[in-house]
Design a protein around this nucleic acid. Structure first.
Lengths: 231, 231, 231, 231
DNA sequence: CATGAATGAGGATTCATTCAT
DNA sequence: CATGAATGAATCCTCATTCAT
């Protein structure tokens, strides 16, 4: 509850030629946003610096005042995405106290956050490998930190006797994959249900596997419409 | 059981300048293999035609006798990967009759197949978007067909009263994500367990959610060592 | 002795946006010094305006208040170098009256001046061609003026009967090349002798060729150690 | 006489993407020639790859099949220049036996060779610093080897009693500077005399300093016209 | 059929110069 | 006057593709 939303692992400094720190922050935010858009749409390699410059309505040269090379932009983009994830979860849990509610809220917000930036989530899957080794490792660290937030919710449920003494690591992994699955397979689900339905159906399915006898009644009731028949 | 392992959706013809069909087939197989290796290692864009030619021990010119452009190679590579998946599942189920056994076998073989070509699986996630629209759609079709194989196993279990009347679509999706999860997060699990442990732990967790009361005893027993504690 | 140390050939005006003449002079001196340092270290083209600005601890914009473009800086740098040469010689000869002594002093001071700014001397050789035609010609004029200072010493020696009636132009040229040789081949000699040894050995060799019979005894005696054997 | 014209210090291999060694040799010669021309005319940095490609009437891409980067071209250019120097001297001395004649021939051929490619000689002075450290060192080695050829002639003269026991190293240096002086100050002498006159006047001057009493008569007689008066 | 040299459009990056503050 | 952020033309280099042998 007193978890700091800031990452334990700090980003490496990216060199800039501009001195005004505030300006650097603003410009980088602007460039990062454009980078996320362009990279998401066309992929990292297929995006040109000119694309990003045009999207951000700045000159090509300006970009290189705030960033050393194209890979920096990819890193900034992925950092932004992953960091925003780690920030959202604690926020959503802030005033929820019941362990099971906290668990459900965590899953829901994570899915929603993936939904809010589907393209960015997919981008992280596609292009993390385009980063230099050390940065790739950083990304993985951040992902692990997100995992820990989920795992903590699970453990709290177990402690509270709401969950059986299940395989926390695997269950966490399953939830993460499920959440990412919304973005990764958006082409299949996106048109046929909302994130919230996705979460409802997912939770109903997965909670079955982990709730203790006594807590079973707390599974959210099925909403009549959403039982689809084909896979 | 009478399912043809060949895709319902046919690949579009890729133009060749060579007449001998047998030769075309052999050469393409050779090139595709090299393409998968190179693309997996460095990504589609970072791989040059020269890389592939060298890996295949042929000249650059030869490649263009069997393929129109670089994207053809990506398509061939992804086709090969996805097709091999669709082929493996029916094979593994060929002489299993019990529905639950068939279900477990399907999940296991799919994970194993992902394990056997982790790089290729990741490749499919990374580079499908680099294909032209029509080919991308084809890829998705093939993925749906794989899904159907799994879904069929699930439905058989429901019909046989081994599974509750669960949300088939979501459960299928969950299983697919779980299987891909092995490849997508190989950096986390790869060093700490085998695929089979992964499958065991995963099935134990997920079956809990779906087995009927009577079938519950059939969950594979936990192997003492593999209950890890950290997420 | 009444020679004006200022060049007969005047520099063209370099445009400035600043009105205060004294300030212009001070700033230009500062910028020129930095330019010499940077150009010497990395060459004209490889040096950026930013390099010079940083070295001079001023902003990039300031430079363009005192100079029209980068080439102006190169010109200022070379002008400074060549002018300082023309200034040193008369100074060193100021209170020497004997013709041969004056000759030797001239050679020595010219070598010393080259030694004091080896990098700058080399710069003049490297980058004069990077100037516009008219400025390049100016540089050459200044070099000719330096030559004249040496030539005058030689002629005085001839008139005084200390030198034979030798080929003044060629001998001047030879002395100039010898002096520049110290800077141009510093990588070879720099570690193995001092400028003064270099001058001693050079004079001993070259005077042999020009002294009249009567003056021969005035050749400075060989210093025992410095007769090297390898070329 | 049995001197090998090949350098003791071998060039590092420059990478090529072309397999046919003969072709590589021909193309490189072609590119090197163009590079020498362009670099000499405009300097290394001011010359673009496109300039060289156009001069050589090939495409930009072709250049990069035979060379890794622009600096390789500079190295090839300078190598060509320096190597040709080391080759010419032994050739010119091949059938001269008298020590003094050999000495004079060596000086003359070296000046002529500098004259034949004045631009290239100047290029070596201007751009050697643009090379990477290791290559710059190589260039210096080659220059030392040329020096040795001259020094050997001087020593032979001393041994034969034609020269006094003079400072060989300095005299060699003086001769080298004198020879380079023809190219470096071509703008001054080029229009007013031929190389051969330059050599004649130079030798007459310098031999004075080194010939023994008995050999003094062998100084080539002054040609009436060429005693200039101004420096 | 197979080869690999040749092409040149295209993309990342640099840096002299400007100009609003 | 001084500053330094912004600009964009210019340059190096890559690599998919072609085609003569």
């Amino acid at each position: 509850m007193s978890k700091r939303p800031t990452p334990a692992v700090r980003s490496p400094e990216i060199k800039t030629k501009v001195e005004d720190a505030g300006l650097v922050e603003r410009r980088r935010a602007q460039l990062t946003a454009s980078a996320i858009t362009c990279f998401s749409a066309n992929g990292y390699h297929a995006t040109t610096i000119r694309d990003i410059a045009e999207h951000a309505k700045v000159s090509v040269g300006l970009i290189y005042q705030y960033v050393e090379d194209k890979e920096d932009l990819l890193f900034l983009a992925l950092e932004e995405v992953l960091t925003s994830y780690r920030r959202q979860i604690p926020l959503a849990l802030a005033d929820v106290t019941d362990p099971l509610d906290r668990f459900c809220a965590a899953v829901r917000v994570y899915c929603r956050v993936n939904d809010a930036s589907i393209e960015a989530t997919v981008l992280a899957y596609r292009e993390t490998k385009s980063l230099r080794r050390d940065r790739r490792d950083l990304i993985k660290q951040w992902e692990l930190e997100t995992n820990k937030l989920i795992a903590a919710c699970i453990r709290a449920c177990i402690k509270a006797g709401v969950f059986e003494d299940i395989d926390v690591e695997l269950f966490t992994h399953q939830l993460i994959m499920f959440s990412h699955g919304w973005a990764l397979k958006a082409w299949r689900f996106g048109t046929r249900m909302t994130v919230d339905e996705y979460v409802d159906r997912g939770l109903r399915l997965m909670l079955n596997a982990v709730l203790t006898e006594g807590a079973r009644e707390r599974i959210p009731a099925a909403k009549p419409k959403s039982r689809a028949s084909a896979a």
